[in-house]
């Protein structure tokens, strides 16, 4: 217990890094995922094929493999990144297909009449998607999207596992070496720090789901 209290600043540092890593990756993967979703529903076959291929390939690759590629293979063949931007890149690449699929199913859930009405007004595909369909799909997409970001929070722990980022899991790896007797307390502290993010976020999903259900 004392070991945890003594190292509160370290915990705080890890917590902040985990949170920052998660938020940055959430933002990037939201942009990437939306573009991918637009590709997958677009009228241009090449874009559709690209979107589908990317989603199928990346969704089936374990995150550890993505991290390994970004950290150890990319510097040899393309360019090296610092650990933190590298981690954001790996997490965003990995999360974007999941975001894409959530948004795509949200788009598919919008009543057909909406897009038909937009088209009958003469709107192009881009206009239909960005001004009519996507804004309406936000509400239904929000709960599953938060679920994806909860998974992202937990996934960010991989960055601390041998990929040179010091976040919460990094704290869990470092401290037991210095205080072997307090190992349970130390790990419980890290677990608690994760739960502080994931459990309230899970509650938020429940609230959002109920709201969506009422509004429909």
């Amino acid at each position: 217990m004392d070991a945890v209290l003594e190292n509160l600043p370290l915990y705080w540092q890890g917590f902040r890094t985990t949170l920052g890593l998660t938020l940055a990756s959430a933002l990037v993967s939201l942009v990437l995922g939306t573009v991918l979703a637009a590709c997958r529903v677009s009228p241009t076959p090449v874009l559709r094929a690209f979107g589908t291929t990317y989603v199928e390939l990346v969704r089936n690759t374990p995150l550890t493999v993505v991290f390994y590629g970004v950290t150890f293979v990319m510097p040899l063949v393309l360019l090296g990144l610092d650990p933190l931007p590298g981690a954001v890149l790996a997490l965003s690449l990995y999360t974007s297909p999941f975001v894409c699929e959530v948004i795509r199913s949200g788009v598919n859930a919008i009543p057909v009449g909406q897009a038909e009405a937009a088209r009958s007004l003469g709107m192009t595909f881009g206009q239909t998607l960005t001004t009519v369909v996507l804004p309406q799909s936000v509400r239904g997409v929000l709960p599953p999207l938060v679920n994806v970001f909860i998974a992202l929070t937990k996934n960010s722990s991989v960055a601390g596992g041998g990929f040179y980022v010091f976040e919460l899991f990094g704290v869990a790896r470092r401290l037991p070496n210095d205080y072997p007797a307090d190992i349970y307390w130390l790990l419980a502290g890290v677990a608690l720090a994760y739960l502080v993010i994931t459990i309230p976020a899970g509650q938020l999903v429940g609230v959002l789901e109920r709201k969506v259900a009422v509004l429909r």
């Binding site: 937990k154 899991f169 790896r173 037991p176 677990a191 994760y194 739960l195 994931t198």
Partner: peptide
């Protein structure tokens, strides 16, 4: 269920191995 669903799998593996 709530607690273990909210934790990263690596952390649980690590817990198993070292603790």
């Amino acid at each position: 269920v709530e607690v273990f669903r909210g934790l990263p799998v690596v952390l649980l593996m690590f817990l198993g191995v070292i603790a």
